[in-house]
Design a protein around this nucleic acid. Structure first.
Lengths: 100, 100
DNA sequence: GTCTTGTCTTTCCAACTTGGAAAGTCAATA
DNA sequence: TATTGACTTTCCAAGTTGGAAAGACAAGAC
C-alpha cells in the first residue's frame, strides 16, 4: 500500500462561504496579511476577525502579529492541520459534486 | 465565439451542505423519490421536506406526486434552471478551491 | 506625558437558519 | 369510520451571520 491520500472529509467549519474563501486564499501562499485578506474578501474587519478567530481556535490557522512601518499588523497562515482539513474538505466537495 | 459556458456563480441556497447533496443526488438522474433521498441523506422527513420546498420555491426543482402501490409518493427532479444553478455553483467551487 | 491614529478585536444586536419532534393533511385501504 | 402511509407544517431551541459601535494597544505627533 502506498502512502494514504488524506481522505475526503466534509468540514462544516470550512464550508461556510467566507471561511472557504479564507482557506482557499491561504492554501497557495505561505501567509497572508489581514488587511489584504479583508480587501480581497470585501467584508468588514469585525467579520473577518471573527472568522479568522474561529479558524484559529480550531487550530486551522496561525495568527501572528508583526510590525510594519511602525504599525502592528496581523498575518495568518494555514497550519498543517488546517491544510489537511482544507484539502480533505475540497476532496469531499469533489466527491459530492462529481457526476457519478 | 463559441457557445458560452454557463458561468461560475456561487449560490448560497445550493451551498448549504444538505441542499448541495440534494442537488448532487439529482444531477445525474432524471428524478429521485423523496423516500429514497431521505434514506440516502439520513435526515428526518421534516428536514428534507423543508429543504426540498426551498429548492422548489426557488424554481430549482420540480416536485411531483405520483401513486405507487396505492400510496401517494413524491418525486423530485432538477429543473433546467436548477441544473444551471447547480452547475454554476460547482464551477464556482472549483474556481475558489483551485490552487492558483 | 497626552492626544491621535491605525489596526485589529470584542461586544451588541437583529435577522436568519437549522434540525428534529409533534401535530396536521390527505388519500387509500381495512 | 378508523387506520395507515407518506409526506407537510408548525413549534421551538440553538446556533450563525454580518455590521456597527465600542475597546484595546502600540507608535508617533506635539
Amino acid at each position: 500500500m502506498i502512502k494514504p491520500t488524506s481522505k475526503a472529509q466534509f468540514d462544516e467549519l470550512i464550508h461556510a462561504p467566507l471561511r472557504l474563501r479564507i482557506c482557499a486564499s491561504l492554501a497557495p501562499v505561505e501567509w497572508a496579511e489581514f488587511a489584504q485578506l479583508k480587501q480581497n474578501l470585501g467584508v468588514a474587519d469585525s467579520v473577518l476577525s471573527k472568522h479568522v478567530k474561529q479558524l484559529g481556535d480550531a487550530g486551522y490557522i496561525d495568527i501572528e502579529r508583526f510590525a510594519k512601518l511602525g504599525r502592528s499588523h496581523v498575518r495568518v497562515s494555514l497550519t498543517r492541520i488546517g491544510r489537511r482539513a482544507y484539502v480533505g474538505h475540497v476532496a469531499a466537495l469533489r466527491e459530492i459534486t462529481a457526476i457519478k
